[in-house]
Design a protein around this nucleic acid. Sequence first.
DNA 1: CTCTCCCT
Length: 828
Amino acid sequence: MSAVPIDSVLPELARLLGDAGRAVLVAQPGAGKTTRVPLALLDSPWLDGKKIVMLEPRRLAARSAARYMAAGLGEEVGRTVGYRMKQDTRVGPATRIEVITEGVLTRMLQSDPALEQVGLIIFDEFHERSLHADLGLALCLQACELFRDDLRLLVMSATLDAAAVADILGGAPVVESPGRVYPVETHYLPRKPEGRMEDMAARAVLRALAEQAGDVLVFLPGMKEIRRVASLLAGQATVPDVQVLQLHGSMPQDAQDRAIQASVPGTRKVVLATSIAETSLTIEGTKVVIDSGWMRVPRFSPQTGMSRLDTVRVSAASADQRRGRAGRLGPGVCYRLWTQQEQAYLEPHGTPEIEEADLAPLALELAVWGTADPSELRWLDEPPAGAYRQARELLELFGALDGQGAITPHGARMAEIGLHPRLAQMSLRSVPLGLAATACDLAALLNERDLFRQSFTGSSAADLRLRLEALGRADAGAHSVDAAALKRVRLEAENGRRALGATGKRTDSEACGLLLALAFPDRIAQGRGDGRFLLSNGRGAVFSESQTLSGAAYLVAAELDDAGTDSRIMLAAPVDAAQLEAALPGLIEEEALVEWDSTAQTVRARHRRRLGAIVLSDKPQQRPDPDRLAAALLGAVESEGTGMLPWTNTARKLQQRVVFMHRFDSGWPDWSDEALVATLDEWLKPHLYGMRSRNDVQKLNVASVLEAALSWERRRRLDDQAPTHIVVPSGTRVPVDYADPAAPALAVRLQELFGMTETPKIAGGRVPITMHLLSPAQRPVQVTRDLSSFWKDAYFEVKKDLKGRYPKHYWPDDPLTAAPTHRAKPRV
DNA sequence: CTCTCCCT
């Protein structure tokens, strides 16, 4: 092996790891760290003959690193150097370096938390900050603390914020290595970019082809943009011998391979790629990179339990990584479709996956680890609380966690299966239904890349049953199926069947919907009849392209893009409601609802069967509970207020008199409107039995209902202390007005009061009545609470005035002895 | 008017 830049720092790295037990190695791509570091550390005395485990974020990278190192030792993979990943492991008894994919570490730790055979764990490409790497590091740090203070950790990264990692490693030393990348000349757009990204990209391609030699790699956010740029370029008379190729993850393997291969000598290629070409795939011969500056990222929403794709600006780190793809073979050129000013505002790093991902897998692993609260572990970024809570709720719904949040035996089995908890749930629960074989097929289908090529469109493109059927067909390699994907799905399905003891069983594609309901109980959808659906999680959903399934009464959506009001359904299968109920009775909630229907202004008693937000059936109850009917009607009065009752004058007056009494004696009940609403249960409820509607309530006699709430003794005292009328000297029974409970009033013509020396008092003599003295024509003349001083003073002023206006009336000089009258003059 | 990438 020829010398690489990393070699200069290896002795120091070995020494630091020996002393401190932890280290961070920052090295640019091309420094050779992945293949050089494990071999160089293998004979370190502190390793004590134990193994080195190195994590790679991708299977391809893990295999090729192992192969490269084995070749350097002149050995086969599986001797000193091996690799380990799901469905593919090459490790022998002599293996001392195991290159593993990130998820494997979690499984290793869960089965042997002390990792007895391992002396050093290396996290490669840690700057990618995958969920698995973050989790793996957190678990390792605790394993070190609890069981293995001699387990050494090395974190390797290209563009990392080394200080933060060094910090959670407990102040680990940082070693930096020079890189070996060729210079890449960077061109920014001169001013504020105008027009569509696709137009700019196409123009940049033409410019690059004219100005530069070699192949061109263009980074675009997604398939849509790639196709648009491709068609723009196709419309141009491009330079001869230039081939335009597309590259994204959902393309079949053979098409991806064609894009990656070096161009035929004498020709040039332009590869239009997603971020797949940033780290995962290397395109041979790239001399020029054109970067749109945008990427698509998934964002999980804990509110809906679904993900959405967002188009966002790349981080400065990503942009540098993309640019570096032009400098692998020699000096290169990079065109950035943004300005130098905008460059200053790019985020330094992308968002770590843990911040925006579905945390159900992580929550399950932590529960198996025995950790309920993630803050018990050390994280670079702690799992967000909302997503973590949603994840735990899902696991509890599945029976993976018990009431205390601890892992159940079922949850432990789910984790062992090594699938997303939803798919693990489907696999395990399918066994008693006799559907394990189909469940394994389905889990494999959903876990792997889509079996069907992108070109497979039409009215059944979103139907999962077709994929299940294709999986079982001998000649499935036909037109629309991606052969490489089919092979992987079949392998995974077969392994699943073996694990569940369902080998050789037939696939039942009609059970598809039912099985999906096990995994996605929150995504069962009820057709609304117009092609739109209501999901059991309460959201709307629709197929982006009209499908045969658009008319289904019920279906289960396995894949959705959570966009706006109606999520887009990508993959689904129909389900029969009766079958669903029979097989999964636990999903259905039965409700006896007694509710006020404010439109019809009546209480409705219904028997409803619900599946989340979906109403399966809704019928009137045969014999509703009278107590609940009365309570519901009472609730309506409570929310609408006492104004809903048919108040009469008599009732209001009775209310006012009691309010007046309560003011002076708190032993009396409070009958203010608010207090009446608050105590409806006591005084109104007994009268509501047998009633259901507003109309029924209108038949109530509020006065007698209120009166019934008073004891006989209180009624007697009310008449005595808050009389309805007072008889004045003229003999007229004048009603007392209690509208103002602080000042009950009597409005009466002055002449009827001749001879009344004192203001009448009520409430057992405590409250003088406010006298509204009126003219013969019932006009207000004077208000007083002290009649005797009125007669002495003010009367004489008033009399003069009244005499002028009502000369025919009787205005005596001595009102205290004069005869009262309700006519002009007293009868003689 | 259509979905980024990866893994147990």
